[in-house]
Amino acid sequence: MYRLCGVAAGAAWTALLAGAVQAALLAGTALAAPAERPRADNIAHRGGSGGAPENTIAACARARAAGADLCEFDVQQTKDQQLVLIHDETLARTTDAEQVFPGRAPWQVADFTLAEIRRLDAGSWFSPRFGNEGVPTLRQALELLGAGGAGLLLEIKHSPRSPGIDRRVAAELQDNRALWQGRRLSLQAFDWQAMRLLHRMVPGVPILLLGTSGARLPADTGYASALVLPHAGLTERQVRGAHGRGLRVYAGTTDRPRVLRRLVSYGVDGIMTDRPARLRGILAR
């Protein structure tokens, strides 16, 4: 894949980072946590996959009605370099691609054009009542945002099969600035170096860094607004350390009430969940 940093460079960068958001975050713990803790963002993981087929417009609409502040979507690139919302690199799990295109195994997203993908049913696997749901485009998600829907947190899925995806995401956002200007829109990815360069292309869009509890922060995180860390192993001390460096902390992904309450008590700035209605109830209390 074309990546702004390249696959090998990205792997080297990840190796360089491996070892501790822990040590770097703990270095900031001497700084006081914010005096007031605003309510954590309720982030619908994959658009809210607990109540509707993941990464669909229907999922995000239902999640918004259930109290979600943001819908998290995964962005991938088609064969003809269009941007669609789907998590897996293959179409098999969440569409009827095997039936519609039986001779096209392993049904990689990057091997199909947008016109072909639009023929697929992306909802019936979840429930027959979602039979009209298709694989949405990034443009559709931006239109939903522009119409007053939930905010968007877009995860760019970097793959060797998707050359130039960062540039195309940036171009799509620039071409549709009127749809998201003044609304809540953020980008995230595991490839931190690519995100640094993407920030230069669309400087008005907040950048979130996906990591692990053992990832070490580079010295310069000025291009980033937040860290997204797994809930397992996350401590209040780490959250305070990140806040001390001027970074928000988003935790993911869990639906368990006990874990949700623990994360809220830590003062995280957002939580990803498949069931935003459950998190809404906890935040209300």
Results as ranks from 00 to 15, higher is better:
residue 266 Y to A: 15
residue 139 R to N: 02
residue 130 F to C: 07
residue 8 A to S: 07
residue 152 L to V: 11
residue 134 G to M: 02
residue 249 V to S: 08
residue 90 T to H: 12
residue 207 I to P: 05
residue 249 V to W: 06
residue 94 T to S: 11
residue 171 A to C: 05
residue 10 G to S: 07
residue 91 L to V: 15
residue 133 E to I: 12
residue 251 A to G: 13
residue 27 A to F: 15
residue 190 F to S: 15
residue 264 V to L: 08
residue 74 D to W: 07
residue 251 A to L: 08
residue 148 G to L: 02
residue 66 A to C: 05
residue 111 D to E: 14
residue 278 R to G: 08
residue 259 V to T: 10
residue 189 A to C: 15
residue 218 P to N: 13
residue 122 A to R: 03
residue 7 V to P: 07
residue 109 V to C: 04
residue 36 E to L: 13
residue 269 D to W: 10
residue 199 H to L: 00
residue 49 S to V: 02
residue 194 A to W: 00
residue 69 D to V: 11
residue 224 A to F: 08
residue 63 A to G: 10
residue 281 G to Y: 03
residue 270 G to W: 12
residue 29 T to L: 07
residue 186 S to V: 10
residue 202 V to W: 05
residue 195 M to V: 12
residue 45 H to L: 01
residue 137 T to D: 02
residue 161 R to P: 01
residue 178 A to M: 05
residue 144 L to Q: 10
residue 69 D to F: 00
residue 196 R to A: 08
residue 11 A to L: 14
residue 14 T to G: 02
residue 257 P to N: 14
residue 111 D to H: 12
residue 106 P to F: 01
residue 40 A to C: 12
residue 239 V to S: 10
residue 108 Q to P: 02
residue 273 T to I: 11
residue 90 T to L: 10
residue 72 E to P: 09
residue 21 V to Y: 04
residue 17 L to V: 00
residue 255 D to K: 15
residue 256 R to T: 01
residue 178 A to N: 08
residue 5 C to A: 09
residue 36 E to H: 14
residue 146 G to N: 05
residue 250 Y to I: 12
residue 10 G to T: 00
residue 248 R to M: 09
residue 179 L to A: 04
residue 196 R to C: 08
residue 249 V to C: 07
residue 54 E to F: 13
residue 149 G to M: 04
residue 125 W to I: 10
residue 25 L to P: 03
residue 273 T to C: 12
residue 109 V to N: 03
residue 78 T to L: 07
residue 76 Q to C: 04
residue 36 E to G: 06
residue 167 R to H: 15
residue 11 A to F: 15
residue 238 Q to M: 12
residue 100 V to K: 13
residue 135 V to F: 01
residue 168 R to S: 08
residue 175 D to A: 14
residue 129 R to C: 09
residue 144 L to T: 04
residue 87 H to A: 04
residue 80 D to Q: 09
residue 23 A to W: 09
residue 189 A to F: 00
residue 35 A to Q: 14
residue 134 G to N: 02
residue 250 Y to E: 11
residue 136 P to S: 03
residue 195 M to E: 07
residue 4 L to F: 00
residue 31 L to C: 06
residue 49 S to W: 06
residue 178 A to I: 05
residue 14 T to D: 06
residue 212 T to C: 01
residue 46 R to K: 06
residue 10 G to E: 15
residue 107 W to C: 02
residue 267 G to A: 12
residue 81 Q to R: 05
residue 205 V to S: 12
residue 229 L to V: 13
residue 148 G to C: 02
residue 204 G to C: 04
residue 164 G to E: 01
residue 206 P to H: 04
residue 130 F to K: 06
residue 184 R to C: 07
residue 255 D to F: 06
residue 123 G to H: 13
residue 168 R to L: 08
residue 283 L to I: 09
residue 39 R to W: 00
residue 244 G to T: 13
residue 172 E to H: 05
residue 129 R to Q: 14
residue 151 G to P: 10
residue 105 A to W: 01
residue 100 V to G: 08
residue 247 L to E: 14
residue 241 G to Q: 06
residue 64 R to V: 03
residue 31 L to M: 03
residue 226 A to D: 13
residue 73 F to D: 00
residue 235 T to V: 11
residue 149 G to V: 04
residue 173 L to M: 09
residue 224 A to V: 02
residue 232 A to I: 13
residue 275 R to D: 01
residue 78 T to E: 01
residue 8 A to T: 00
residue 85 L to F: 05
residue 55 N to S: 07
